[in-house]
Design a protein around this nucleic acid. Structure first.
Length: 202
DNA sequence: AGTGCGATTGACT
DNA sequence: GTCAATCGCACTA
């Protein structure tokens, strides 16, 4: 077995800072977490945008201690606990003082699959990272990484695409009640690691 | 101090 | 398909 070539780290200006463009651009890119146990990486296949002024976004109520990372400049990890159960990972977008971000909802396991299986307590590949809480758990992402900079040489980073991406689908976002009709969810069509009901994924 | 509510998941009918 | 678990946070008083 030959290990796949490591992806190159992306720099801050190789991705759009604007929220919707970022959500689209992240599809196909690599999310990496380097740990003592080894490298965990996924190919990002699903995202959701939470732009400025979006009533569904955590930043809508203004800056609080919980959502402070969303107001940092582009490229910081906003990690919060959803439903008291799951950690969810976002990338802060726009510029300092502007509360917006992109939720990373699903990925396709690339490296560290055995470790992901251990962390998830599930052996089936499709159950490892096909949802935002699952992805964070498999990738070893929790509150400790809130505020981490994706582009400062740290253990959590974004890499170039490891292969061309397929056609991108767009749908409404999953699990929200406010601003629920906006087409702000992006995913790679026909990718088995995308979350959500199949009818949303066409 | 008490209340209500999720950017979810997994178990179960 | 339905539904409970679980808890940090924002808000009210």
């Amino acid at each position: 077995m030959t290990a796949p070539p490591p992806p190159r780290r992306l720099s801050r200006d190789e991705l759009p800072h604007e929220t919707l463009a970022l959500a689209r651009a992240l599809i196909g890119k690599t999310l990496v977490h380097d740990l003592p146990e080894g490298r965990l990486s996924v190919r990002i296949v699903e995202t959701e945008a939470y732009p400025v002024g979006d009533a569904a976004g955590h930043a809508f109520i203004g800056q609080t201690r919980r959502n402070a990372t969303l107001f940092r400049d582009f490229g910081h990890a906003y990690v919060y606990l959803g439903y008291g159960v799951s950690w969810l990972l976002n990338v802060s977008s726009e510029t300092h003082g502007v509360g917006a971000g992109v939720l990373i909802r699903a990925g396709e396991p690339i490296e560290g699959v055995d470790e992901m299986i251990r962390r998830r307590g599930r052996a089936r590949l499709v159950e490892l990272t096909s949802g935002p809480g699952k992805l964070a758990m498999a990738m070893g992402v929790d509150k400790r990484l809130d505020g981490a900079d994706f582009f400062a040489g740290g253990p959590l980073w974004l890499g170039e695409a490891v292969r061309p991406r397929g056609e991108i689908g767009v749908s409404v976002r999953i699990g929200i009640t406010k601003d629920a009709d906006r087409p702000l969810r992006f995913y790679e069509r026909a990718n088995p690691f995308v979350s959500g009901p199949r009818k949303l994924n066409r």
